[in-house]
Write a protein that binds this DNA or RNA. Structure first.
Lengths: 250, 250
DNA sequence: TAGTGGTCTAGACCACTCA
DNA sequence: GAGTGGTCTAGACCACTAC
């Protein structure tokens, strides 16, 4: 807005800008509304476009804005709560889970990421089934997943029976249901979207994501590992021990 | 390294740079080692410093690098696993939890963030105790927390008894232990460090953080809410239902 | 084709750390 | 005081979207 000459305390311009914009978003804009373009905004605030962009990037990181190339910058809706654990442990693919199987492939144990191969105890020469799944909430893609299942864990799998990619994925998931599940162990960390994930999530490569790594434990052994990649800008991951979630914000 | 003229496919320079640097980190550098400074690196790769910095920022976001003004850029150790839930539910401040109480204050219900006030059901005029705690793992500050406890939840609290700030914090925590805890409900989302948190976490304002919001439920009502802010660059939050965590990576 | 955000440059100065 | 990363500028061109 006007001139702010209390720069006696050194506060980066982009930080101050972010605060001003954040307040403006609360008071003067509605969800979905399009902001002025970056060149105009920069001129209005008397800063270089790069500086303005630094402020916008922060606000996008916090889920306040959504930017789309060729379109513009819009005010983002509040983050959606995405339930990550289910009350009572269950295997992926159990009835009612939120994921859609996409395809499956059998790969060599040497080609899976070390962070996955290690807990599974697989090496080069072993076979690992990799199931791809996606998750759509509120009509929007929110997550992509790779589920790693050593062939050893599903000895009854009839590999030849399935014809299409989705059928192959379902076959692996169905075999998992036969096993007892003793427990799950999860880790959440910040990452950036690989090119492949970015495409599925409708974001640019490098976009911030929340990576959830889950170990599925049966009889003291890790029988499967999943790596789920959630859009960090639109998702708030929820972990509840009660069924009636759907609380807090909208 | 050398010239890479397979730019037939349009891939941003910073993205390619990031890949090259990431590989170099794996093969040519040890944890803690100092990289060449940004001006030298940019010259070496034949790009502007801003472009080089874009790649470094990504790698820092992924926890691969650590940058400190006036010092340099170093290779970061693998993220540490930080247990967020405890086996068996328990109140904050229960014996053995990883947090250090810092201080406590009684504030008006109108001045707590809406995302906290709403589930607690507090309004302006109500009194809410705010306990500040910090968490240090491996000699490094990893998280800062604000715990909101409505005065209504701890009617037995003797406010005048405590003398120092830490004692006041402990007094609130001790009162909590008297209540039954039916369940906890958590949410994890990406945020950026407020100036205050940044100082405690030894980071610059705006640094990416994982914000864990926990609702403590007693008899169907939310009796306390905590907002914990973890350094996203150094932490991997773990949620396990088994005691013997301490697995995966180092 | 016009307009948007995304990438990139070649500078400059500042805040901080440390010898 | 020398060297580091952090901020900022004023441009330019590119990739994408929508009309």
């Amino acid at each position: 807005m006007g001139t702010t000459q209390l720069d006696t305390v050194q506060e980066p311009k982009y930080w101050h800008l972010k605060t001003v914009l954040s307040d403006a978003l609360d008071s003067e804009f509605a969800v979905g509304e399009i902001l002025p373009n970056e060149r105009d905004l920069a001129a209005r605030f008397g800063v270089a476009r790069a500086t303005l962009r630094q402020a916008l990037e922060q606000l996008e990181l916090e889920g306040r804005l959504q930017r789309r190339r060729g379109v513009g910058t819009t005010v983002a809706p509040p983050r959606m709560g995405v339930p990550v654990d289910r009350s009572g442990h269950s295997w992926p693919g159990a009835p009612g889970d939120a994921w859609q199987p996409a395809d499956a492939a059998a790969v060599d144990g040497g080609s899976v990421p070390p962070a996955v191969a290690e807990p599974l105890g697989v090496d080069a020469g072993d076979t690992v089934h990799v199931v791809r799944r996606t998750r759509v909430d509120n009509g929007q893609p929110v997550a992509a997943e790779l589920l790693y299942v050593p062939a050893e864990s599903v000895p009854g799998l009839a590999t030849a029976a399935a014809t299409g990619p989705v059928a192959r994925a379902r076959a692996v998931l169905q075999e998992l249901q036969r096993l007892d599940l003793d427990g799950e162990e999860r880790a959440v960390e910040l990452g950036s979207a690989r090119a492949e994930d970015a495409k599925q999530l409708d974001r640019l490569p490098g976009a911030p994501v929340l990576v959830v790594t889950t170990r599925y434990v049966t009889g003291g052994r890790t029988t499967a590992v999943s790596v789920s990649t959630y859009r960090a800008d639109t998702c708030r991951l929820t972990f509840g021990d009660r069924d009636d979630v759907a609380v807090l914000t909208g």
